[in-house]
């Protein structure tokens, strides 16, 4: 199976790493030979129909900052749709940055791949949260596979888990802690008694929060994810603008102490249920699955047949997120 990777940041590099680590195992277990025939970043690309060496890709990106410096096969200024024209692939791995204004350029990348009859695996929330139906319908009408397990909860299994393992169930509601950064900040505030601003700063210094933390702390990232779940698992037709959103930047120590006195914690929770699509700080009982600490993610699916099913896992990280992408690739290969 030939794959091309668009975006060679934390997740793209993670994919190259796991392919390098798992190469022999994938062949033995599944008869799958994953060949990376093209990689692009913001400034250029590397393309080889015979396959690029994942370790060399990582080394070049690390040293030179651009994949176009890949010996012999690197090309400057070849990006986007032009890149997709040139590369010979079966499946696009779309891992460029999330854009929540118009989903671009990822949306166009994916639509082109579908039109050309290629499968797509992505971790990119933007186009999924804005144009879910457009994308799934384009995949369907072109008879190709479209998988996006990594877009919600990183390594925490949820989308394929709901579709495959819980096949036959209807999903009545989904509650989840879907953003690791805010969960880290709120956990620290509860443990250390520290103020919001100070805790955010610490998280930034540790690389857990981004320099511009808006999408995380204002709940937009979690909102994208609950939209994806509502569309994909609950069969709704919603987009980011339909979510009622409150972030965590107003949470103070006073509120955390009041919650504690009652045996509760404050967490940023995303909810999709009958009449509600919402991301907001909520009270959760200490000692329940929703009291998870640190950057962990958790979600409870309420089903008609299996009652509540709860999953917990790592919501981000290079290798962790790549694991979800790899499992999508293997599933496409197996089918």
């Amino acid at each position: 199976m030939n794959i091309c990777i668009m975006g060679f940041g934390a997740v793209g590099k993670g994919v190259a790493k796991v392919i390098s680590i798992k190469k022999d195992e994938l062949k033995k277990k599944y008869g799958l030979d994953l060949k990376i025939t093209g990689v692009s970043d913001s400034s250029g690309a590397a393309i080889s129909p015979d396959g690029l060496d994942p370790n060399l890709l990582l080394e070049v990106k690390e040293k030179e900052g651009r994949v176009s410096q890949y010996p012999e096969y690197g090309t400057d200024n070849l990006t986007g749709l032009n890149f997709l024209e040139k590369v010979d692939y079966d499946c696009l791995v779309e891992v460029t940055p999330t854009n929540i204004d118009d989903g671009e350029p990822a949306r166009s990348h994916m639509l082109k791949a579908f039109k050309d009859g290629k499968d797509v695996v992505t971790s990119n929330k933007g186009p999924l949260a804005l144009n879910f139906r457009e994308l799934t319908e384009a995949a369907l009408s072109n008879k190709v596979k479209f998988k996006y397990e990594a877009s919600v909860g990183g390594a925490m299994p949820i989308i394929n888990f709901a579709h495959d393992t819980l096949a036959g169930c209807n999903f009545e509601s989904i509650f989840g802690i879907l953003n690791g950064t805010t969960n880290y900040i709120l956990s620290r505030m509860a443990k250390e008694g520290s103020a919001y601003e100070q805790t955010l700063k610490e998280a930034q210094e540790m690389g857990i929060a981004e320099t511009d933390p808006t999408q995380d702390v204002e709940g937009l990232d979690a909102a994208c994810k609950i939209v994806i779940l509502a569309n994909s698992i609950m069969n709704k037709d919603v987009s980011l603008k339909d979510v009622y959103i409150n972030g965590i930047s107003k949470i103070n120590q006073e509120s955390i102490l009041l919650a504690k006195k009652e045996g509760y914690l404050i967490k940023l929770v995303a909810e999709a249920s009958d009449d509600t699509l919402e991301v907001s700080p909520r009270l959760v009982k200490s000692g329940t699955p929703f009291s998870v600490d640190g950057t962990m993610n958790v979600a409870t699916l309420n089903t008609d047949l299996a009652e509540d099913v709860t999953v917990v896992g790592r919501g981000a990280g290079s290798i962790e997120t790549a694991s979800a992408i790899l499992s999508d690739l293997i599933n496409i290969w197996k089918s």
């Binding site: 509650f175 404050i266 929770v269 907001s280 700080p281 909520r282 009270l283 959760v284 929703f290």
Partner: peptide
């Protein structure tokens, strides 16, 4: 409570 919160500009933290 949410409705009151919207009118009075409170952040409302409800149970789940």
């Amino acid at each position: 409570i949410k409705e009151i919160g919207e009118v009075k500009n409170f952040l409302v933290i409800n149970e789940i």
